[in-house]
Write a protein that binds this DNA or RNA. Structure first.
Lengths: 193, 193
DNA sequence: TGTACATCAGTGAACGCGCGTTCACTGATGTAC
DNA sequence: TGTACATCAGTGAACGCGCGTTCACTGATGTAC
């Protein structure tokens, strides 16, 4: 049956939200359209009223996932002995390299969850992704001090380390939990002081 | 038709080699058994004489991929002004964070290519992967100076940065080539001096 | 060394299954009068 | 404001396709005598 325009818009948002979460959890190749629409409380047939194709939905889901932001870890501000690290930055690093973030990719950083899939998903997806990455670099530069080119370099290096460490921690989490925790702890202490 | 034991062994190796390359190129979910056996010059039916299942082959392929080693980049030794970086290390970093490595995942680092897929592939695969990662940390520590716990920490941080930077560079390569090159250059100059 | 035959690596058709996509249909919405 | 009807979001069956896996079969290998 038909549905009000407002409800249709809400349904569309629900599909994008479900896709953004499921793709991060199971990978771009690991989820079908039936599962995504079911998660949004719909059936798969109506999906093409909203999206041209599976790839078009995946691109919107990727954009949506990039609206995610790191949750600063509470209690890691260390007001006394401040390391080689600006105030808010330490909490960001600790939040990103946390066991919770490692174990909840569906609500986490889209770069760590999707980058490898994106590299194989064609030019349009790569463009969407590159814009998200650039926006993250900009946002991260706001947290840093120093002159501009050096600030940007530091943002790139720090974010690369965080993405790499989280990726390694996830892949080793089940097979060698001690190693996984060691990677998280080592890199967050290095970056966060 | 039957085939000599020596030929059968060679065929088996060929399947594992093809799988190790194709999985790194297209992801664990992006290649079928038909394509892998075809690449090895065989048909798909006989695969189960050698491997219990698709997952068992994938595990062997992952082990095989971890036999890969970084090719040091020639001409990047910089014998005069040595940075904050040991001799052979600089060439390793420049080889890893090269455009060539970015564009040839099939013969490259299995961590950057497969980590995200491995995180979703179950406990046995995670164990295989964790062993490969640990072996890479050990190998990298051999290139570093300093006392042991610090050496290990440096190996973990450096490898995390390299994996993250290569992953980011690959995902953005088509959509924003300038950004992709900037990431590679920034991180290799930071790590390699 | 020669012969007879059991073994088994490899072939290719077939299976059930889930995928992305299409489409005839339903019925509440929203518009024209 | 009320009525008649066109619109179109959503349903669910159906499609062709490729997947992992199975299996009857082939015929060279390698062994027993």
């Amino acid at each position: 049956m038909k549905v009000s325009k407002a409800q249709a818009a809400r349904n569309r948002e629900g599909i994008v939200d479900a896709a953004a979460r499921l793709y991060r959890e199971k990978g771009l190749e690991g989820v079908g359209l039936a599962e995504i629409t079911r998660e949004a409380g719909l059936t798969h047939g109506g999906l093409y009223r909203h999206f041209e194709s599976r790839d078009a939905l995946a691109r919107e889901a990727c954009t949506r996932a990039f609206e995610w932001t790191i949750t600063p870890q509470e209690g890691s501000e260390s007001p006394g002995a401040e390391g080689a690290c600006a105030g808010g930055l330490r909490a960001l690093v600790y939040g990103y390299l946390s066991t919770f973030h490692r174990d909840h990719p569906g609500e986490g950083c889209p770069v760590a969850a999707l980058a490898a899939d994106v590299a194989r998903a064609g030019p349009e997806m790569s463009e969407v992704f590159a814009q998200g990455v650039e926006r993250n670099f900009q946002r991260f530069m706001g947290e840093l001090q120093g002159d501009d080119p050096a600030r940007r370099a530091q943002a790139i290096v720090t974010l690369s380390s965080m993405v790499g460490a989280l990726t390694l921690a996830r892949a080793t989490a089940v097979g060698n939990p001690g190693l996984s925790e060691e990677i998280l702890a080592t890199v967050r202490e290095q970056l966060g002081g």
